[in-house]
């Protein structure tokens, strides 16, 4: 154990995801040795992120203003909504530059073990967005694990009466990979989702 304040810092850093006690100690001593201005900038950035960053009132993505950059962009197709679990998933899809519609961030996935049910997610907000009938396609891009699949199934059932096109991202083989290195589950899924080769 270190003297009070140092140990406090190590404990707080250790609460961050991906930071174990050893890394927390390393970061703490790095900060101790660092230039005071540098540490101030970090502290400022930490406070600012909590004060200034908000969640878009439309899609739930992180935003600097009331609405996020994507929801404000008139060039984005308002007829297609892509549903994701977290804001970081929006970034991942944006990197592809393939999707020109809008997003809806749920804030997680249904997982009874963790006490997360549908009413803990931004599902009601999604239903409000779909209510006026302007949206024609809903893309379910939740994670391809059990909880993500369950959330997708839940949403698909919920919006079924609305009669819009509901699609799920394909799961299968990674591009540029070798077939032999794929694990059995992925390969099995890829078989299930195979498509007709149109030539």
């Amino acid at each position: 154990m270190y003297e009070g304040v140092v140990q406090n810092l190590i404990d707080e850093l250790g609460l961050l995801p991906g930071v174990g006690p050893k890394s927390a100690q390393r970061i703490a001593f790095h900060l101790l040795a660092a230039d005071p201005a540098e540490v101030k900038r970090l502290a400022h950035a930490l406070l600012e992120v909590k004060e200034k960053v908000r969640f878009c009132r439309v899609c739930g993505n992180v935003a600097a203003e009331q609405d996020c950059r994507i929801c404000r962009d008139p060039r984005r197709d308002p007829q297609v909504i892509c549903v994701v679990e977290e804001s970081k998933d929006v970034i991942a899809i944006e990197k592809t530059r393939e999707f020109r519609g809008r997003y809806h961030v749920l804030g997680g996935a249904i997982s009874p073990i963790d006490g997360v049910g549908p009413d803990d997610l931004r599902i009601r907000e999604l239903m409000t967005r779909l209510a006026d009938g302007a949206v024609t396609e809903l893309i379910l891009a939740t994670d391809p694990n059990l909880e993500g699949e369950a959330t997708a199934t839940y949403l698909a059932r919920l919006v079924k009466p609305m009669g819009l096109r509901v699609t799920r991202l394909a799961s299968g083989l990674p591009v540029g990979g070798d077939l032999e290195y794929a694990d059995e589950v992925t390969l099995g899924r890829a078989f299930e989702g195979r498509r007709l080769l149109d030539v």
Partner: peptide
């Protein structure tokens, strides 16, 4: 009940 239906199907 409504979430149960989802887990049922899985």
């Amino acid at each position: 009940q409504s979430t149960l239906a989802v887990w049922d199907s899985h």
